[in-house]
């Protein structure tokens, strides 16, 4: 799956756009096409007995949307919530999910050559969910296959049967 994603990027030649956000000191990139909107963090209703990184649900113009804190999920940065806390609203396969991050920096286009395969490493973020590592000048972007990550069982967002 990771490989095919890269292939697709390479085929397209002129590149693929990624929304870049920060978690702690690290920079992550996700496919811009899965992003619906970016908004502030507010009015989240806790859901009982859910994993700690699922903050709860919020009202997005009449739609009930679960909010996931990726900082808690990946144990990065301080999970505090201020007026500056940013929620990226993703639209993944007819489902809408909000993701809390430390900040959104920019949108970057990466070409196939700029995306390197991800090496095997730690267990918090399995390479299974990585599209690769993007290098842009001196910056390194961790490119996440957000769709795969959000629909994974470990995120506990979707019923197994679904």
């Amino acid at each position: 799956m990771e490989a095919s994603a890269i292939d697709k990027v390479q085929l397209e030649g002129e590149g693929h756009e990624f929304l870049v956000f920060r978690l702690g000191a690290e920079e992550y990139g996700i496919d811009i096409l899965s992003v619906q909107e970016i908004r502030g963090y507010e009015g989240v209703t806790r859901i009982a007995n859910a994993p700690s990184f699922i903050k709860g649900v919020t009202n997005l113009r009449g739609v009930i949307v679960p909010i996931v804190d990726l900082r808690l999920k990946f144990a990065l940065g301080n999970a505090d919530y201020t007026a500056q806390t940013v929620v990226i609203v993703l639209n993944i396969g007819h489902r809408v999910v909000g993701v809390v991050v430390d900040g959104v920096s920019d949108v970057l286009a990466l070409t196939g050559e700029q995306i390197k395969p991800a090496p095997e490493f730690g267990s918090t973020l399995s390479t299974h969910y990585l599209m690769g590592l993007g290098s842009l000048d001196e910056r390194m972007l961790i490119l996440v296959d957000i769709e795969k990550l959000m629909s994974s069982e470990e995120m506990a967002l979707i019923d197994k049967a679904a």
Binding site: T45, N49, I158
Partner: peptide
């Protein structure tokens, strides 16, 4: 369940007058 999974003990959600869930 439109965007989340089934939660034991909860049948659905609603939006209150102040916009909260």
């Amino acid at each position: 369940e439109t965007n989340y999974r089934r939660v034991p003990g909860i049948s659905a959600a609603t939006i209150l007058g102040d916009g909260s869930v």
